[in-house]
Amino acid sequence: MLTLFRQRTTSPRLERLHGLSLFVNLTPAELEIVDGLLHERSYLEGEVIFDEGEEGQAIYIIAAGEVLISRQEEIEADHAAQPGVNEHGAAYPRRRQGDTGLVARLGPGTFFGELALLDNSPRSAQARAATPCKLIVFFRDDFVSLLDTHARIASKISRQLACHLGARMRSMALAMSAHQHLV
């Protein structure tokens, strides 16, 4: 009976999860609980993961490959800034995201779409696979039930999430001040 509660050895899969920044503070037992809630998906190069404006239901963690985050309005702004690219004006066709409208290019271990864990507001950008990639998906309602049933695990994940968001806000603030300084 006592052996059922003993410390478990970690599997390669759990080791890999432990290496992800979102789950870095979780113990093996906690990781196993979280692992039961995660889904794994494979995407081909160029495949859309989610669209801008779509209702967000999950956070995505990149296990392998790269993902492009881009915004439609920035593509349109770029089009408008280049006369002759589109002479018809408003009706731009949706394009495969290259450098145009690109917000970020994310690599393994990073995550995106994290605001979906907090609310169900529309996605503020599009995510598209830059290379063939494997993503780990954490569904919002599973996270919400984790808050009720395993508050300790959920608080550890929330803390990592908060740290991540704080770092991004600081880098954005720095970028904005640098831009104002140049202007």
Partner: peptide, 12 residues
């Protein structure tokens, strides 16, 4: 990054 961009913009 997707998360910190304002959600107030209308979806395209």
């Amino acid at each position: 990054m997707s998360s910190i961009i304002s959600n107030e913009t209308a979806p395209p």
